[in-house]
Computed example of a mutant assay.
Amino acid sequence: MRSSILFAALLGAKQHVLGGYTLRDNYSPSNFFSMFDFWTAADPTNGVVKYLDQSTAQSQGIISTDGSSVYIGVDHTNVTPQGRSSIRIESKIQYTHGLFILDLGHMPGSICGTWPAFWTLGPNNWPQDGEIALIPISTPAIGVNTQSRNSMALHTTEGCTVTGQGESGSLTTSNCWVKAPGQASNAGCGVSSNTAGSYGDDFNAAGGGVYAMEWTSSAIKIWFFTHSTTPPDILSNAPNPSQWGAPQANFAGNCNIDSHFANHRIVFDLTFCGDWAGNVWASTPSCASKAPTCADWVINNPGAFAPSYWSIMSLKVYGQ
């Protein structure tokens, strides 16, 4: 009897090790900015923005940390004809596979002209090594300006499609190739969240939440939890995605994940207008009534962007 109990215990421990995740990188408030490079070149998405280096951003109060959170904001004081000052950062570490868990207390609000994003991308000519957008980037008319529900997307070279099976969100486009016929340019494969409060003002009013992305050879899955519904295993730093239920997005199907996604950096940014938010300005009546163009609004109304900030409680990357 004793031997059978011992065997069962050892088998359970072995299965836990084989299927479990261990913490690899902890982007905590104490080390957060030292683990990122600051992008200071022009915005690739043609936004009305000026990206700052670390020392300038710190001196202007646009970034800061305390014992429990990281603040990343924008200039919300000055009229800015050259573009509103903001931040784009990319992790120094590159990843292929992993479990990425982001706990946010606040994300940039649902403000006309804003285009925030939390995403990953590879080092070679885009989208050669793929792009994973957890919080909106390049999905038409979802997740910018005044939207309240998140969108998620993959962007790849030719030869990657997904089915939308096994997810709680709604598949909006199935071909991840950025030049796919029958889809908007650069749309990729996209999923729209069906969960209220997953983005913008509604997200902030609920006190934030947790985004988790599991990247394996077979699929890329994304979950969203409010703080009240976050699984206990995440809180105890022993995450087990198999116990979380259906993800909001399950990017799987006729796609060799490993041939399309590799060596990604983690990116946070907040731009304004540009190729997406600017292009849908006229089709968003509550925004179009504020100014003739997105650029006019962003340049001349600094006070509107005080709620445009990230408050990051933690970012943890787990491996197997």
Rank of each mutant, 00 (worst) to 15 (best):
E158T: 13
F32N: 08
N194T: 15
Y27H: 02
N175C: 11
A42D: 14
I93H: 10
N204F: 12
S198W: 02
A288T: 07
N263Q: 09
A117E: 00
Q183C: 10
V267K: 01
S308P: 06
A196H: 08
V298L: 05
D201A: 15
D66K: 02
Y309P: 02
R149N: 10
A288D: 12
I62P: 10
I142V: 13
A277D: 00
V48D: 00
I63V: 15
T146D: 13
P302L: 08
S192E: 12
W276E: 04
P307G: 09
A262P: 00
F7T: 02
N204Y: 03
P116E: 04
W310T: 09
S198D: 08
W281Q: 09
A212N: 04
W119C: 05
I266L: 15
A252D: 12
R265L: 00
S91F: 10
R84Y: 06
I132W: 01
T65R: 04
Q248H: 09
I111S: 11
G190K: 00
F33K: 03
Q94H: 04
F272G: 02
T157W: 02
Y318G: 11
G182W: 04
I111E: 10
G113L: 08
A153Q: 13
T172Q: 03
I234H: 03
N237L: 13
T139V: 14
W297R: 00
G12V: 12
L270T: 12
S168V: 01
H264T: 01
A184S: 11
V210K: 11
D53V: 05
N78C: 05
F272C: 03
A262Y: 09
C176K: 07
A219L: 05
S308D: 07
L235G: 06
I142D: 02
G67T: 10
G113S: 11
Q183T: 04
R149V: 13
P239A: 05
T65K: 06
A295Y: 08
T195E: 09
P123N: 13
L134T: 08
S259R: 10
A206D: 08
C294I: 09
S308W: 01
A277K: 00
T173R: 06
C189Y: 07
V317K: 00
S91V: 05
D202H: 04
M313V: 15
R24C: 03
D296L: 04
N250G: 13
D201V: 04
S236N: 14
Y21R: 13
S170A: 11
N150P: 01
H227L: 08
